[in-house]
Design a protein around this nucleic acid. Structure first.
Lengths: 177, 177, 177, 177
DNA sequence: GATGAATGAGGGTTCATTCAT
DNA sequence: GATGAATGAACCCTCATTCAT
């Protein structure tokens, strides 16, 4: 995960992976069908973690607070797994890739947590009735990713709290009934 | 441009490029120092086009209208050069790439147009005084990219006008003094 | 070794080497870092052999006999590894080559055996006191090489013993106190 | 000549040659059938020069003095065209080269001048009667080349006069009736 | 369960040569 | 007489994958 997240998929060789894992190259193939499958499982692991944190963040909170909690959870995740976040940003909107299917599925699972929150908010009247659930959810996910990574890459001296404030204030305005 | 934008840098071979261009492989190397340089010139060309359209869009407009015009110009550009936009989204926030230097420079030129507009708006009082110019400009650029590409990739049936409306309304709210 | 010695470094492709060795091309690269490194190891092997035979030839002999033994050892070596000797003659005095460093080192080791003999002879008074050790050693090495190879290439019908006699008589005259 | 002598045949591209000559690449092919032919003419020119100097050196001298003059002429030539001499040393005893035929011919012409001197000396009784003309001539030529170049490459700090003295004294002893 | 030597398809790059202008 | 854009064969090298042990 460290290697591929830092260097990218193509730049990371199976030799590298085996060496970092402290096993022989054959062992990688003993445990994974192919490099592609290994990468898919990496994506599964990484996005699964994010989805789990999304779930933990919203647990028991009312819609508007849950929304804020999701933003915080995403930023926190990106801060902790910065390289993986960059990887996601690179791969998420690409087409013609072998693992595209898998990635869409995983993206769907993560966004579904956001969607549930939005859906509940719309139903309870806490969020605007004309808010398109699917659109709002995926936009929130994507915007959080790009804004946070942009900050990390191009303005690393700034504290991530600033991003959080900016994003939360925007979300709040958009979420106003 | 079509090939690399569609398949990505590594997946596109120089053979592919030569074949698509209808020339021999040697001809590619007669015109470009290396595959990397070719890609850099591709980036230069593509982002140069965007920068030019940014400049054309804001010409003579007052700050708030210029901001809206920039959003429209970016979306229009992404609609027209969809594959290139995906490429940008994939490469813009990666590190450890040979063309990173070039990309950062070009990104800076494009964002500078946005920054000039924001700066003028803050100076004239049309935009909030506490708006951080650098941050706001790069965020606007990034958000437009990810939201539009997300739409194109995951909800292609929706008209791009919806994205435009959504983005413009957000920008307007954030830009309120 | 046969291939490179016969055709030269550039004219011998890695494909050739793999084919002659009866392995796949990748196998060559699994065992050698690069074609250059392979060639360096070839030089190391070949010159190492010569150095070893030099050492064996002089073992226990008094200076003047040792000198004659060295000439005989060199000629015998050239006869046995004719192609390699030609290779040495071609590469030894070239500059601007990647393996130059390696070659100089190996040359130094081989010549050092000769030098030890000459030095001992000068010290014991068996050889002229004004003989420059370094010069005499490298000249002896080079002359043996060029005279023997010249004979092999341009007058192959002549027995090598003639060269031996000629060289030994010259060495003896020069070595006279 | 400068380029090929310094970098070697393979390392010098036709582009290099054209650039150094200040003409277009096509012009090189307008004047020379191929790179090989160009190299052959280079050899012809370079060795022709040496042959001419040999002829000039021996003109009118008695055999033993002519022999000494030849040694001096060869060394002087090597000093002046050092890179070309290294090139000769590299190519002269190689086999399986395209220009081998040409090179042998040219070598023959140069050595013939030496041979004429030796032959005359043997006939007149100035040189030992049992001296093999062909062998002696080619050996003198080769030894001069390798000893002088060795000196230039491995002991460049020493004056070439030392080599001259050493070679002349050897030649004199060998030439003693 | 684990290994690592071996593979070979495929990639980027070079460069002598050609030929229309 | 001269040019230089275009060529394509050939080269060195990489690396995901296999398989006998």
């Amino acid at each position: 995960m460290e290697l591929i997240a830092e260097q990218g998929y193509s730049a990371t060789t199976v030799d590298d992976i085996a060496a970092r894992a402290g096993v022989a190259k054959g062992t990688v193939y003993y445990n994974f069908q192919s490099k592609t499958v290994l990468f898919e499982e990496l994506l599964r692991h990484g996005i699964g973690l994010l989805t789990a944190e999304f779930r933990a963040a919203v647990a028991g909170l009312p819609p508007r607070e849950a929304l804020a909690a999701l933003v915080r959870a995403e930023l926190e995740y990106i801060r902790r797994y910065r390289a993986f976040a960059q990887l996601l940003l690179s791969e998420m909107w690409r087409t013609n890739r072998e693992w595209q299917q898998t990635l869409r599925l995983l993206r769907g699972e993560a966004i579904e947590v956001i969607a549930e929150t939005v859906r509940a908010g719309v139903a309870s009247g806490d969020l605007p009735a004309d808010l398109d659930v699917r659109t709002a959810s995926s936009a929130l996910f994507g915007v959080g990713l790009v804004v946070a990574v942009d900050w990390l890459v191009f303005q690393p001296e700034r504290p991530l709290e600033d991003v959080e404030d900016a994003l939360l204030s925007i979300v709040r305005r958009v979420a106003e009934v």
